[in-house]
C-alpha cells in the first residue's frame, strides 16, 4: 500500500469521524473532514504505527476495546485516589521519581509513548522523562505504588503489542 493510498484512506476515516462529531452528514462536511484529514495525515502520519494482520484482526480489535475500557476504569480510579489524598487533612503521600523499563525488545517509540500515556492515567503516576524508548521516569504520588509497576508494565506491553499487531515475543 503506497503512501498516497494510505493518506487518502485515512482521510476518509477521519472525515467520517468528523461528520460523526459535528453530527452533520453532508457533502460539504465530508469535504472539510477529508481535506483537513488528508493534510494532517500527510504531514505527521506514519504508517509504521500499527500492522494490521487479517487473520488476527478480530483479536486486535478485541484487545483495543478491552484497552479503552480499562483506560476509562483507570482514570476514574485515579481521580478518586487523588481526590481522597487531597481531601485528607494530613495529605498522605510519599512522592518520588521511579525508573521503569519499557521492557520492549524492539524499543519501539510508539509503544513507549502509549505506555507512558497509560501510566499517566493509572492512579498516582505521571510520566516525566524518557531515556530513548528504554526507560521511563515516573513521578509517583506514593513511591510504594511503584513496587508492582514492572509487572503492570509487562502486562501493558503485551496488550499494546497485541493491539498493534506486533510479533509475539
Amino acid at each position: 500500500m503506497g503512501r498516497i493510498t494510505y493518506v487518502l484512506s485515512m482521510a476518509v476515516v477521519l472525515s467520517i469521524v468528523w461528520m460523526g462529531v459535528t453530527a452533520r452528514v453532508s457533502v460539504e462536511s465530508f469535504a472539510v473532514g477529508f481535506v483537513v484529514g488528508a493534510l494532517i495525515v500527510g504531514l505527521i502520519g506514519t504508517r509504521k504505527a500499527a500492522t494490521i494482520q487479517p487473520t488476527r484482526l478480530p483479536r486486535q480489535i478485541f484487545n483495543l476495546i478491552v484497552y479503552v475500557l480499562l483506560s476509562f476504569v483507570e482514570i476514574t480510579r485515579s481521580s478518586f485516589d487523588v481526590a481522597r489524598r487531597v481531601l485528607d487533612p494530613k495529605l498522605p503521600m510519599q512522592p518520588g521519581i521511579v525508573a521503569i523499563p519499557t521492557q520492549d525488545p524492539d524499543q519501539d517509540e510508539t509503544i513507549a509513548a502509549l505506555s507512558a500515556h497509560a501510566i499517566t492515567i493509572t492512579p498516582g503516576q505521571l510520566a516525566v522523562e524518557f531515556d530513548g524508548a528504554k526507560v521511563m521516569y515516573i513521578h509517583c504520588l506514593d513511591v510504594a505504588s511503584a513496587q508492582t509497576a514492572d509487572q503492570e508494565q509487562a502486562a501493558r506491553l503485551k496488550r499494546l503489542r497485541a493491539i498493534l499487531g506486533r510479533a509475539e515475543s
Binding site: I75, T76, S78, S79, F80, D81, V82, A83, R85, V86, L91, M93, P95, I97, T120, I121, P123, G124, L126, V128, H139, L141
Partner: peptide
C-alpha cells in the same frame, strides 16, 4: 489539590486526573 499540594509534580496529579473526571 492545586492549592494544597506542595510542588509542580504533585500538583499535576490533581490538575490532570481529578479535573478529567
Amino acid at each position: 489539590g492545586m492549592m494544597r499540594l506542595p510542588d509542580v509534580y504533585t500538583r499535576l496529579h490533581a490538575s490532570g486526573k481529578v479535573s478529567t473526571l
